[in-house]
Amino acid sequence: MASRPEEVTLIGVCDGQLDSKRYQSSYLTNKVGGPPDWLPGISLQSTRCGRCGAPLAHVVQVYCPLEASPYHRNLHLFACPGVECSGRSDSWRVLRSQCLEAESAGTASRPDPAQEAPLAATDWCDTADDWGMEDEEDWGGGMKKEIHKEAAAAPEAQAACETDVSSQLQDLSLGERQEDVPVLRSFFISVVEESDLFGEEDDLRHAQRLLREYERREGVAVGELDGGEGKGGEEKYEKTKARHGDAVFSRFMKKISLCPQQIMRYCRGGKPLFISEPPSNMAQVVSACGCCGGSRTFELQLMPALVSLLQRGDSGVEAELEFGTVLVYTCTNSCWTTGSKSAMEEICFVQTDPDQQLFK
C-alpha cells in the first residue's frame, strides 16, 4: 500500500480589493465577499438564515478541485449579518458545486490577464501552490489535493438528494429585490504553504538547542537567542501563559503567530485548529452526507482576521459578523452526479471568540 502523501496546510491571506470595474471574477477566483460566481449549469441559489429567515451575505468563495477528479469544484460560504445571529452555526451555510471541465468549456473562460489587478489572486509566491490556477497539464491547478474515488450516486438517489436540498434552499424568485440581499466588499485571496512560514523559526530552534547543549557541556549560562537582547544586557525570556488556563486557545494563538493576518486555512482531510474545546459530540455535529450517506471530512476554516474585512459594499460599514473560527466539513467522496443543477449543502461549525477585538 502506498503511503499517504504528507498533508499540506495552505494559508489564505487578503491580496487587495477586487474592483469589479477593473477585474471580472469567475468561479476560478478565490475571494472574500462580492456576489457568488456559480459554476456553469448550476442554478442560482438564494440562501436564508436558519434562525431568522433573512437573506444571507456571501462571505467566501473558494475554487478547490480535487486531484484525479474530472470536476471543477467550488465552495461558497454564506452568513447572516444580523446582530442576533452572529456566531451561530445555524446562521451559516456552505454550498459545494461541481461541473465537468467539458461542461464549462467556452462558458466561463479565464479572465484576460490584461484585466488583472496587481497582486491578483493568481499571483502566487514561487514556492506556493496555485490555488485555483489552471495550466495545460493540470486543470485543477497546483493545490495539494487528496486523491479520492468519485461516488457514483444512482440517479434516483441524486434526485432524492436534490429534492432535500431544494427544500432547504429557497430558489431565487423574480419578485425578490436584489437590494434585499446584502453584498460585502470583495477582496482577492492569495495563498502560501504554512511550511514556508517556519523556515526562520526552525533555524532559531536549532540554534537554541545547540546553545543548551553547549551550556550543559561547559557548565556556563548564556543569554537566550531570541533575536534581541534584554534590557541592560540581561537575559530575556519570553513565556506564554495560557489565557485563563485555556490550553486550546493558547495552542490556537501559537499556531497562527507566524501569520496572524491569515484569513483562511485549507487542509482537506487534515486536522482543524479549534479556538476552544470542541463539543464531546463532535462526531454527531459532523453528520453523514445527506446525499450519499458517506462520512464528511474537514476541509477548511475561516480565521478571526477575516472579520475586519467583512464590510458592506454600499456603505463600507463593518458587517455584524463575529466569530472565532468557522470550520467547514465536506463529503469525503465529494459525491456528485454529472449534469446536476443544484449545489450540495455541507456543514459549518462556528466557534466564538471572546477576544475577537484583538484581531481588528
Score class of each variant (00 low, 15 high):
Tyr237Thr: 02
Gly232Cys: 01
Val183Leu: 11
Glu229Ala: 11
Gly233Ile: 10
Ser190Ala: 15
Ile189Lys: 12
Gly232His: 01
Ser173Gly: 07
Gly230Cys: 04
Asp180Glu: 15
Gly227Glu: 01
Pro182Asn: 14
Glu179Ala: 15
Glu200Cys: 02
Gly199Met: 03
Lys231Gln: 04
Asp171Phe: 06
Arg216Phe: 11
Leu204Gly: 01
Gly175Val: 13
Gly232Pro: 10
Leu174Thr: 13
Asp180Val: 13
Arg209Lys: 10
Arg177Asp: 15
Asp171Ala: 12
Gly223Cys: 09
Glu215Trp: 02
Glu213Trp: 06
Ala207Asp: 14
Pro182Thr: 13
Gly230Ala: 08
Glu224Phe: 02
Asp171Trp: 04
Leu172Val: 08
Glu179Gln: 15
Glu179Trp: 11
Lys236Trp: 01
Ser195Thr: 04
Leu225Ser: 00
Phe187Asn: 05
Ser195Arg: 09
Asp203Val: 05
Gly219Gln: 13
Gly223Pro: 14
Phe187Ile: 06
Arg177Asn: 14
Leu174Met: 13
Gln170Asn: 09
Glu235Gly: 03
Val220Asn: 08
Phe188Gly: 02
Arg205Trp: 10
Val222Gly: 02
Glu224Val: 01
Gly175Ala: 14
Arg212Lys: 14
Arg217Ser: 03
Phe198Ala: 03
Val191Trp: 15
Ala221Tyr: 15
Phe187Pro: 05
Arg212Gln: 12
Arg216Thr: 10
Glu218Pro: 01
Glu193Ile: 00
Gln170Ser: 12
Arg216Trp: 11
Val222Leu: 15
Gln178Phe: 11
Gly223Met: 04
Arg209Thr: 11
Arg205Ala: 06
Gly227His: 01
Gln170Phe: 01
Ala221Leu: 15
Gly228Leu: 09
Lys236Ala: 00
Tyr214Met: 04
Ser195Phe: 02
Gln168Ala: 09
Arg205Gly: 08
Asp180Pro: 04
Lys236Phe: 00
Asp202Gly: 01
Gly228Thr: 07
Glu200Gln: 03
Ser186Arg: 12
Gly230Asn: 05
Gly232Asn: 03
Glu218Arg: 13
Glu193Asp: 06
Leu225Phe: 00
Val222Tyr: 03
Gly228Arg: 07
Glu194Arg: 13
Ser195Trp: 01
Glu194Gly: 11
Asp171His: 02
Gln208Asn: 12
Glu194Trp: 11
Asp171Leu: 08
Asp202Glu: 08
Arg216Cys: 10
Glu229Trp: 04
Val192Leu: 07
Leu172Pro: 03
Gln178Tyr: 07
Asp196Gly: 01
Tyr214Glu: 09
Phe188Ser: 10
Gly199Glu: 05
Val220Met: 10
Glu235Val: 01
Ser173Trp: 05
Arg185Ala: 13
Glu200Asn: 00
Glu229Phe: 03
Leu210Pro: 00
Val183Met: 06
Arg177His: 15
Glu235Trp: 00
Arg185Cys: 15
Ala207Glu: 14
Gln170Ile: 09
Phe187Ala: 02
Gly199Ile: 07
